[in-house]
Structure formats: C-alpha cells, structure tokens
Design a protein around this nucleic acid. Structure first.
Length: 270
DNA sequence: AGATCGGCCTGGACGC
DNA sequence: TGCGTCCAGGCCGATC
C-alpha cells in the first residue's frame, strides 16, 4: 500500500503504539541483518516520501519500504497469514509485524541518516505537504523536462511520495495530459496546487483502500470514493462526461480524461 | 548525467 | 478443472 497517504496513515496508526518501546526480540525470514536492534528503544517513527524511518536507539535507523504489497501492523500475536517476513517483539507484548506477499518491500537497518543503500531516498524531493514544496522550486525542478510529466512525478526527485494512483489523479485535476513534457507556467501552478490538494485530502481519508491492506483492525482508507480517473476506464469523467481512457506510459497503466486533459503538439506520444 | 528497460516476487483474473 | 498469459499501488541496477 505504497503511496504517501497510505504510508502516512500507517505511520500515524503505529506511532502511538510502538514509539518509546524497547526491542525484545526479532524473528522472521527477514530478521537476520536486524539483530543489532535488540535492546534498543524505538525513539521515533517518521515518514519520508513512501518510506518509513524508525530511529533505533541513538545511532541506528530502520528503513522500511512497503513495496507493492507490504503491510505493517502492531498486534498482540503473529497473524495467521503466510508471507510474514518480520516480527519485532517490543516490550509490553506489542508485536510489530511486516507482512509482504510479493516481497518487493524492504527493511534495512542503517547508521542513522546514511541512506546510501537507497538511491531514491537519498535523492528524494521535498515533502509535498510542507513549505519545502513551493511552486518556484517545483517549477525549477521540472523546467525543460525531456520526459512525460507523469514519469517526472513518479521518480520522486521533484516531489516525494507520489505513485501511480496520485500521479493520475493530480494530473487530471490539473487538466494536464500525462504524456506532456514541457509545461507552461500556468500548468505548473495548477499541478503544484492539485498535488497539495489531492494528497492532503487522501491523507484525511486514510488513503485509497485496496483489498491487500485491510487488516480488519483499523479503518480502511476511503479515498477510493474520490478517485476521478484511476481504474475508471470507460466511466464518464465527472467533469466533462468523456469516457476515461487507459494507456500505457513508461510501463505503467495510466488513466486520464481525453476531454479534460488535451494533448498538444509537443506531446509526441499520441 | 539522465533516461529507459528488465528484473525482482506472488497470486488473482481471464481466455481457451 | 487446468493451464497459460497478463496484470498489479515500486524500486534498483545495468544499459545506452
């Protein structure tokens, strides 16, 4: 459940339960490189883009990426699901469990602040819901882009935390075709605004709910009800009534409204 | 240096 | 029913 709103929801749900607790034991197939955490206190739980960062003691940091199918939950006992990758036993009988069916997720223990093991994290752009994400800086980042704007949104360098769902949703609200390359200043302004609006709303709704990350304990995300194009191929656009289209762009399924998001001559994909 | 492609995994949906 | 193929919310490393 990988994009910013979903990861932020996980962070908020877990923080209350696990922050301040000491690691008692670690097991599961992914536990071997993490043995140094034993006895350390989980000092805080932060989020950067789609990554969760848990400070462990004074010097270490646990980097968690949920990949495509990863789930992280606090529980009293190990879930009966298969695909449990890691169980961190905390004091007070709290278990922090990482379940990941497709195993695209990663859990890495590093010296605090040393992100060399993750190029994406090291080069991560500004957090979209903070002041660090301002329009002028965003415009500088994407000025003269040679690649489709959707690919730029997905690569995490211009802005952090956007994946396939929110790339399509923010571009639709900004009336920009996903294959567009160089944007006008007005378009950059609309996109900057829609990124903030859409992600903030999705965080309020606890993200977009998919079957993979319902654990039955915490409320599922409800932003799925507010999606306007993602996975709505053939459905009339809520703004103009045109059927939502599905194309492949940069190897990813891409949904957009051909009525609202009109390509121009500089868009050489269509 | 930056862009593009295949690889990593498993399982569900679909067509024959 | 069974088998094959395609697809899925993301990242990394090897290529050009």
């Amino acid at each position: 459940m990988p994009e910013l709103p979903e990861v932020e929801t996980v962070r908020r749900d877990l923080a209350r339960t696990i922050v301040g607790k000491r690691v008692v034991k670690i097991d599961g197939p992914a536990s071997k490189p993490l043995s140094r955490m034993r006895g350390l206190v989980l000092v805080n739980l932060r989020r950067r883009g789609k990554y969760l960062l848990a400070k462990m003691g004074d010097e270490l940091e646990l980097i968690i990426h949920l990949g495509m199918s990863g789930r992280l939950l606090a529980a009293a006992e190990v879930p009966r699901t298969s695909h449990v990758r890691l169980v961190i036993h905390l004091e007070g009988g709290v278990l922090l469990v990482f379940v990941d069916r497709r195993r695209f997720g990663r859990v890495t223990l590093v010296t605090a602040g040393d992100y060399r093991s993750s190029p994406t994290l090291m080069r991560m752009g500004p957090e979209p819901l903070t002041d660090a994400f301002n329009r002028a800086a965003f415009e500088r980042q994407i000025a003269g882009a040679r690649t489709p704007i959707k690919a730029t949104l997905l690569n995490q360098r211009a802005v952090a935390g956007i994946g396939n769902i929110y790339a399509d949703e923010t571009l639709h609200r900004a009336l920009i075709h996903p294959a567009r390359r160089e944007l006008t200043s007005a378009e950059v302004g609309r996109l900057h605004k829609s990124i903030r609006t859409v992600l903030a709303a999705a965080v309020r709704h606890r993200g977009t709910s998919f079957s993979l990350h319902r654990d039955g304990l915490l409320p599922a995300g409800s932003f799925g009800r507010h999606l306007r194009v993602f996975q709505r191929e053939g459905v009339p656009c809520l703004s103009c009534g045109t059927s939502v289209a599905k194309i492949r762009l940069g190897g990813r399924s891409t949904y957009y409204c051909p009525g609202c998001q009109v390509p121009t001559t500089e868009c050489n994909v269509l």
